[in-house]
Computed example of a mutant assay.
Amino acid sequence: MTEGTGRVALVTGASSGIGAATARLLAARGMRVVVDYLHSSQAAEEVVAGIQAAGGRAMAVQADVRDAAAVRTMVDRVGAAWGGIDVLVHNALTPYAIKPFRDMTWEELGGKLDDEMRAAFVVTKAVVPTMTGRGWGRLIYLGTGLSRQPRADMIALGTAKAALTQFARYLAQELGPRGITVNVVEPGPVAETRISHVLDEEQKRRQIAATPLGRLARPEDVARVVAFYAGEDSAHMTGTTAPVNGGMSMY
């Protein structure tokens, strides 16, 4: 078995895309995986079925990550079944407006900021006590390259994810002495996801032309970096941000 044997990983927003790819990979590496979803129960169960068919262990649990009571119920259910969560992969993406600042309302921008930070706050609050008690934990947040490199009409998402990245750094400073690492994975454009439609074909061609590795990321590319942070190879890394963009942006 692998180094992940026995660990329990909660992947939020895991019914498709990056979340599903991450759930499958962590399970393949020996972790027991909680597939969180909001609406897509059938898709989540298909992810679980695929993991189980490959010899892994997984369960699907419905919870709106912005709802503290729902998250607490989910975490309690996982605790009863598997004894608590060791790894959090916070991937769930709340809705956001795609428009320029001149057309945006405060409800749209402020609402995205509130949703983003509320969800991160709620799920982190729910899992940190167990990690602290064990003296070991991994918190991994999915950001976006848009928090560093602006693109037209993406101010709501980019601003909210920039806040999330700074939140993670503060957590890294506070939780390091407790054996918990905190890191952020920042994908560039990712093909084969529900939000990949944001780029039209001409925009995709331009993005690929600007990428030294010659293609957009796939969900599996992002999942492998998440899995690195979830394991022991990254044990002395915290407060870091990993760009997964094929060299489109270098920092």
Score class of each variant (00 low, 15 high):
T5I: 06
T5G: 08
G6A: 13
G6R: 10
R7F: 00
L10I: 10
L10T: 11
V11F: 02
A20D: 04
A23N: 14
A23P: 14
R24M: 06
A27S: 15
G30W: 15
G30K: 13
V33K: 14
V33W: 15
D36Y: 04
S41Y: 01
A43W: 03
A44P: 10
E46Q: 12
V48A: 04
R57N: 06
A58T: 14
A60D: 07
A60S: 10
Q62Y: 02
V65M: 12
R66N: 13
R66E: 14
R66I: 07
D67P: 04
A69F: 04
V75K: 10
D76S: 15
G83P: 10
V87I: 15
V89A: 04
N91Q: 11
T94V: 12
P95G: 06
P95F: 08
I98R: 11
P100I: 04
R102D: 08
D103H: 09
T105W: 03
W106T: 11
E107K: 13
K112E: 15
L113P: 06
D114T: 15
M117V: 05
A119Q: 03
A120R: 12
V122Y: 08
V123R: 15
T124H: 04
A126K: 09
V127L: 07
P129Q: 12
T132I: 11
G137L: 03
I140A: 02
Y141C: 02
Y141V: 01
G143P: 07
T144V: 11
T144Y: 06
G145A: 14
R148E: 14
P150D: 13
D153K: 15
T159A: 13
T159C: 03
A160K: 08
A163V: 11
A163S: 14
L164Y: 05
Q166P: 03
F167W: 05
F167D: 00
A168S: 07
R169C: 09
Y170P: 00
Y170A: 11
A172W: 01
E174A: 15
P177D: 08
N183K: 05
N183W: 06
N183F: 03
V184Q: 03
G188I: 04
P189G: 03
V190M: 08
I195A: 05
I195P: 05
H197W: 15
H197Y: 14
L199G: 05
D200Y: 10
D200G: 05
Q203C: 00
K204Q: 05
K204H: 00
R205E: 09
Q207R: 10
I208P: 08
A209F: 04
G214F: 13
L216Y: 00
L216T: 00
A217L: 12
D221R: 08
D221F: 04
V222Y: 04
R224T: 09
G231E: 13
H236P: 00
G239I: 11
A242L: 09
N245Q: 05
G246Q: 02
G247S: 01
S249D: 07
